[in-house]
Simulated assay, not measured.
Amino acid sequence: MQRVQNLARRVAAGALVSSLSAVVPAAAVPGSPACEHVTLSWAGGTAKQGGGSDRQETARVQVKNTGDRACSLLGAPSVELTTDGVPERLLPQRGGAGVDLAPGRTATFTITFLGDTGRNGNEIIRPDQAVVTLPGGTVKTLAWRWGSVTRQEAASRPGNYVSPVA
């Protein structure tokens, strides 16, 4: 009887492990290597170089794995727009599926922001760079070329935010 119970426990444990591994994506597995060897570049969106709009704009960022092994990204990066070193932190959106990047492959995320010409009386920042911290901790910097942005850190419903990596 004891042997039958032990066998039943092992079968149940194996079924549980099998069902869990089918639900958890590979990118979310603890221990997946972070993307350390990457380049970032601007890759489109609605924003125009130099800015000049008084509306919400998007700037898409491409992340390319320049390393020699696959790496994983899960969630939204942290982005700070800096003006003379003073940061304006953008709100990261929640969610997103894990992205596995093979060597040479790319993924993207979008920075959404309120462009501002300064004519509306809003408090604005004139960023000179975007400091990006990717999921996993790799930090990269991009020169900001999209003009002035409405300051939103204290907004109850910010219009400046970052999408998860896809």
Rank of each mutant, 00 (worst) to 15 (best):
residue 2 Q to K: 13
residue 4 V to F: 14
residue 4 V to N: 13
residue 4 V to K: 13
residue 4 V to T: 15
residue 6 N to Y: 13
residue 7 L to M: 08
residue 8 A to W: 06
residue 9 R to D: 15
residue 12 A to K: 08
residue 12 A to T: 15
residue 13 A to Y: 11
residue 13 A to T: 15
residue 14 G to D: 03
residue 15 A to C: 06
residue 19 S to W: 11
residue 20 L to W: 07
residue 21 S to G: 13
residue 21 S to M: 13
residue 25 P to Q: 14
residue 27 A to E: 08
residue 27 A to W: 01
residue 27 A to P: 01
residue 28 A to V: 09
residue 29 V to T: 14
residue 29 V to I: 14
residue 30 P to S: 07
residue 31 G to R: 04
residue 32 S to V: 13
residue 32 S to G: 14
residue 37 H to M: 12
residue 37 H to K: 14
residue 37 H to V: 11
residue 38 V to P: 01
residue 38 V to I: 11
residue 41 S to V: 00
residue 41 S to D: 00
residue 42 W to S: 01
residue 45 G to N: 06
residue 45 G to S: 06
residue 46 T to D: 11
residue 47 A to K: 00
residue 47 A to L: 02
residue 48 K to G: 12
residue 50 G to P: 07
residue 50 G to L: 08
residue 51 G to K: 10
residue 52 G to E: 02
residue 52 G to H: 04
residue 52 G to N: 09
residue 53 S to F: 08
residue 54 D to E: 07
residue 59 A to G: 10
residue 61 V to D: 01
residue 62 Q to V: 00
residue 63 V to W: 02
residue 65 N to W: 00
residue 65 N to C: 09
residue 68 D to N: 13
residue 69 R to Y: 12
residue 69 R to H: 15
residue 75 G to N: 00
residue 75 G to H: 03
residue 76 A to S: 15
residue 77 P to Q: 03
residue 77 P to G: 03
residue 77 P to T: 05
residue 78 S to W: 06
residue 79 V to M: 02
residue 80 E to Q: 15
residue 81 L to Q: 05
residue 82 T to W: 08
residue 82 T to N: 12
residue 82 T to S: 08
residue 82 T to I: 04
residue 82 T to Q: 12
residue 84 D to E: 14
residue 90 L to E: 10
residue 91 L to T: 12
residue 93 Q to C: 09
residue 93 Q to M: 08
residue 94 R to K: 09
residue 94 R to L: 09
residue 94 R to M: 07
residue 95 G to M: 02
residue 97 A to F: 07
residue 98 G to R: 00
residue 99 V to F: 02
residue 105 R to E: 11
residue 105 R to H: 12
residue 106 T to S: 03
residue 107 A to G: 03
residue 107 A to I: 02
residue 108 T to F: 04
residue 109 F to S: 04
residue 109 F to Y: 12
residue 111 I to N: 05
residue 112 T to Y: 06
residue 113 F to A: 08
residue 113 F to V: 06
residue 115 G to I: 02
residue 116 D to R: 08
residue 116 D to I: 05
residue 117 T to R: 11
residue 117 T to W: 00
residue 119 R to E: 13
residue 120 N to T: 15
residue 121 G to F: 01
residue 122 N to G: 07
residue 122 N to S: 15
residue 124 I to F: 11
residue 125 I to R: 04
residue 125 I to D: 01
residue 126 R to H: 14
residue 126 R to C: 05
residue 128 D to Y: 04
residue 132 V to G: 03
residue 133 T to N: 05
residue 134 L to H: 05
residue 136 G to F: 01
residue 139 V to F: 02
residue 139 V to C: 05
residue 140 K to S: 09
residue 141 T to N: 05
residue 141 T to H: 07
residue 142 L to R: 02
residue 142 L to F: 05
residue 142 L to G: 00
residue 142 L to V: 10
residue 143 A to E: 13
residue 145 R to H: 13
residue 146 W to T: 03
residue 147 G to Q: 01
residue 149 V to M: 11
residue 150 T to W: 04
residue 150 T to E: 15
residue 151 R to I: 07
residue 151 R to T: 07
residue 153 E to D: 14
residue 153 E to V: 06
residue 153 E to I: 06
residue 155 A to R: 05
residue 156 S to C: 07
residue 159 G to Y: 13
residue 159 G to F: 13
residue 160 N to F: 03
residue 160 N to L: 01
residue 161 Y to N: 02
residue 161 Y to G: 05
residue 161 Y to P: 00
residue 163 S to G: 06
residue 164 P to N: 02
residue 164 P to L: 04
residue 164 P to W: 03
residue 165 V to D: 09
residue 165 V to Y: 00
residue 166 A to S: 15
